[in-house]
């Protein structure tokens, strides 16, 4: 029997949907190895999130609260998570593959001498071991991974697991947070610069409209924004569009950017480089608009329109407005 510890993802005071997806993953693991899952959240003050966390069906919710924990400094978080893992004899530690999860969990793995698998998309149980599937080579190969250490550490790709919903009320325990380790003297948090957006979170949006180099300028990106806003969606971009300065890099979709899987994905004025496709190919419906009929994006799209985006996008906005009436 083993127990699973989930590290919650909290951003802007909100328990992110990625946490719910991680709960679904943890339930699957528990169905294989027995035990139960618990949740650990770290932050300055989690009184506002406690209720949402307690509604995720966990055996227990642990809250680690101390000044500075909101900054998610890996050197600060690691010993706290380690203590909870050791005290609770957890066998699997899992977090969404958020930037914090990616930053902190490998450090935890090294600290605990535990093996780690990144961006897991599937788990099965075979010959008494958990087998994790994870994408490699920009999603062109899936590897099946087995971890041979007593504690197994994972990040999972939230888009591959349904978001768990429940109305339960788990017991909540405020843990004693260990003192900040000495190494904190060598790292100073200077601040967080928020990428301002009034639109839904790219990772959670039901509709994503992405633009590429074909947009030609920052001003033209407004065409992408107009369509996104009409559909209550998020805006995404290719690396080329980000590098060209059309949009902030927080909106980059791809192998090394955000991984998205909305119900509806528009790929506009982008060729479909495999690094980009790696970040969006799990979308339910993909629409491509590109004037080059040879563009590889048409190979992965459900619907394609070969057209000049500067003409097609405004037209599309008008047409959708018509049918929405």
């Amino acid at each position: 029997m083993g127990n699973v510890l989930i590290i919650a993802q909290i951003q802007d005071g909100e328990v992110k949907k990625a946490t719910n997806s991680t709960v679904t993953f943890a339930s699957e693991v528990v169905s294989h190895i027995g035990g139960a899952y618990s949740i650990l959240a770290l932050g300055d003050d989690l009184s506002g999130q406690s209720e949402a966390l307690a509604a995720l069906g966990a055996q227990k919710v642990f809250l680690a609260q101390a000044d500075g924990l909101d900054n998610a400094i890996a050197e600060r978080w690691t010993p706290i998570i380690e203590k909870v893992v050791v005290d609770g004899a957890f066998q699997v530690v899992v977090s969404p593959a958020s930037s914090t999860g990616k930053d902190v969990l490998p450090r935890l793995a090294a600290r605990m001498g535990a093996g780690m698998a990144s961006e897991v998309v599937e788990v099965v149980f075979s010959d008494g071991k958990l087998n994790y599937t994870r994408p490699m080579y920009a999603g062109n190969v899936n590897g099946t991974v087995i971890i041979d250490t007593p504690v197994e550490i994972l990040t999972i790709r939230p888009t591959e697991f349904e978001a768990f919903s429940s109305t339960g009320a788990s017991p909540v325990e405020k843990i004693d947070v260990p003192q900040a380790p000495e190494i904190l003297g060598k790292i100073e948090f200077l601040g967080f610069e928020k990428a301002e957006s009034t639109r839904p979170d790219l990772a959670e949006a039901g509709v994503v409209v992405s633009g590429g180099r074909g947009l030609k300028s920052e001003e033209n990106f407004k065409l992408i924004e107009d369509l996104a806003d009409l559909l209550g969606g998020a805006v995404g971009a290719t690396r080329a569009a980000v590098d060209a300065g059309y949009i902030h890099n927080d909106f980059q979709v791809g192998q090394t950017g955000k991984i998205v899987a909305p119900d509806l994905y528009f790929a506009v004025g982008l060729s479909g480089a495999l690094q980009h496709v790696a970040g969006m190919k799990s979308s339910k419906v993909i629409v491509a608009i590109n004037k080059d009929e040879e563009a590889p994006i048409f190979q992965v799209s459900d619907y394609g329109v070969v057209a000049d985006l500067f003409k097609a996008l405004p037209e599309l906005v008008e047409e959708i407005k018509k049918v929405a009436k």
């Binding site: 951003q11 998610a72 930037s99 790292i187 100073e188 610069e193 990772a203 890099n249």
Partner: peptide, 14 residues
């Protein structure tokens, strides 16, 4: 300046 979810985090490391 670290590229993280939702923006950028600035840290100074010795």
């Amino acid at each position: 300046t670290r590229e993280v979810d939702g923006g950028a985090a600035k840290v100074k490391v010795a």
